[in-house]
């Protein structure tokens, strides 16, 4: 437990030192999306009488949680290839699980904070949504899942450029396809089936359900948690491999 705290402590000192930079990055993208898409869709109704801004906000919350928790992969990558601090972790008497759990939690903290910033933006723009424990649960679960995925990809990447490519192929498509900006109903059935399997889809559904006072889709929550479990195991395997 102390070693997990050590990894968290390290990441949180970094977070504290670069807080204003991080805050700016947490604000800019959702604000742009909110202005660009929210403004364009102002007054339009989506689905069962939901205002577009109210539809968009949970999508942005889920997307921010995903993007910024996944951002830990860049930090890990830089620490491995540039600062070489990963060797310091590897010569410490800690198990691979401890490292994976520590980094997953660190990434999740960033995802949760970024999601909180989007919620604040929603409050500022007077979007109609609910703040409740369900929303918090959905954000925490989403952040943990994508943070675990980040560790796997960071260990698989051989260079910084690889990391950028991985983000382009995994994160960007999910950000636009998984019901973040528009309902999935417009897609053909076969594509919708594929998209619904991607982890951001259940994450967005969870956040949206909580934000719209609906009961949480627990099956989707279970599915998301299971995917997170797979990512954790994968992270464990690739961390072990990265040792040699």
């Amino acid at each position: 437990m102390q070693a997990v705290m050590a990894i968290l402590l390290r990441e949180n000192i970094i977070l504290k030192r670069k807080f204003w930079k991080y805050l700016a990055s947490w604000v800019v993208s959702p604000l742009l999306y909110f202005v660009a898409f929210g403004w364009a869709g102002r007054g339009r109704m989506v689905g069962a009488g939901v205002d577009y801004a109210a539809f968009l906000l949970p999508g942005l919350v889920a997307m921010s949680a995903m993007t910024h928790s996944f951002g830990i992969s860049t930090e890990i990558n830089i620490s491995r290839f540039y600062w070489k601090t990963f060797d310091e972790i590897r010569t410490a008497p800690i198990s691979d699980w401890v490292y994976v759990v520590g980094e997953t939690m660190s990434g999740a903290v960033r995802g949760i904070l970024a999601a909180c910033v989007v919620v604040l933006l929603g409050l500022i723009f007077r979007v109609d949504f609910a703040l409740n424990p369900g929303l918090f649960f959905a954000v925490v679960l989403t952040s943990l899942v994508f943070s675990a995925l980040a560790i796997s990809t960071a260990m698989l990447a051989k260079t910084h450029a690889d990391q950028g490519l991985i983000s382009s192929f995994i994160i960007t498509p999910m950000a636009f396809l998984c019901g973040t900006f528009f309902p999935l109903g417009a897609y053909p059935g076969w594509l919708r089936s594929i998209i619904q399997c991607l982890p951001l889809s259940p994450a967005a559904n969870l956040v949206r359900a909580a934000a719209h006072h609906q009961s949480l889709p627990w099956l989707q929550a279970l599915y998301l948690a299971a995917v997170g479990g797979v990512f954790l195991v994968a992270a464990m395997v690739v961390v072990k491999r990265a040792k040699d």
């Binding site: 705290m5 402590l9 970094i14 670069k18 620490s79 600062w83 070489k84 601090t85 972790i89 410490a92």
Partner: peptide
């Protein structure tokens, strides 16, 4: 290590404290 592998965002004391926790 041959490379001077320190986190650029840490002070000397913090670098040692993190190492102490890891051990």
């Amino acid at each position: 290590h041959q490379t001077l592998n320190f986190d650029p965002e840490l002070t000397a004391r913090e670098a040692l404290v993190v190492h102490g926790h890891l051990h």
